[in-house]
Amino acid sequence: MDITDIFLQLMLTADMTIRLSAVLTLACLAGLFSERAGIFDIGLEGKMLFSAFLSATVAYESGNVWLGVLAGIAGSMVFSLIHGLASITFRGNQLISGVALNFLASGLTVVVGNAWYHQGGRTPTLSGAARFHEITLPFADLLRDVPFLGPIYADVISGHKPIVYIAFAAVPLTWWILYRTRFGLRLRAVGENPESVDTAGISVVRLRFTAVMIAGVLCGIAGAYLSTSQAAGFGREMSAGRGYIALAALIFAKWRPFYALGATLLFGLLGAISNLYPNINVFGLFDIPVQFTQALPYILTVVILAGFVGKAVPPRAGGEPYVKER
């Protein structure tokens, strides 16, 4: 393998990493908003799946992918609303609510999809304006011939579907909202110490609902990406555990936006490696099995959780329903 070959392989890996990370980033930020406000959300997976289904069907029926995305976001927000009702209004168990919603999404998408399209839960293939296409960033073709940097700009940074750029733009936006706005300050406070927020005369219920709904929007976009960008249509269980990987990334990122980007890029990279190079041979000595690369995000998260490599401290009031003193 010569140097240009290696460079090409690296470019391919980087390109795939970005494509695989985008969904994780969106879902991870969704979890971040929710958990920073004190509401655990293991229903990221279900929300994405439900959104993927609705985006695909609406995009197919209307022929307009943006309508599809809106439908996906709306569906995901309905799930968020249920999660909010269960965990905020009725002070139920947030984890159980999340489990239920994940189940509901797995079942409902296939039942309804099968009843409508008779393709075993799949939706018809999207084409033309009903799905997203690659965007070529300005000057990408012009700069392609610049050595080294040109191809990186033209093939790795440019040439992705719109939602990829939305995902990466959402990271600094989330940071700004959390750390530079009054809303963000209150949101972080309500996840750490809801009593103090309540004492200040701010509604804990409204703040938490807002956070949960924002999570719904982000999961909605993530789900729409799966069925209208990554694939051309919905397939059963197409979220394939990404919601849980995003959850793992959130812990890895210690509930911080830019760390979240780093964590999701890392997990995206692991995904790309297991896709592109299933069995890696280490110096001719032994093979690293593909299952190990696939399991690595989970293993790393357990190691982080165990506190062996820096401690991940979740928001203090996370998972606890807030009961106002009378």
Binding site: I82, L85, A86, S87, F90, G92, N93, Q94, I96, S97, V99, A100, L101, N102, F103, L104, S106, G107, L108, V110, V111, N114, G121
Partner: peptide
């Protein structure tokens, strides 16, 4: 998968709501 929907709703109503 209808079974999954029913199970999900049972978990939702008995567990979370």
């Amino acid at each position: 998968e209808m079974v999954l929907v029913i199970q999900a709703l049972i978990i939702l109503f008995t567990g979370a709501l």
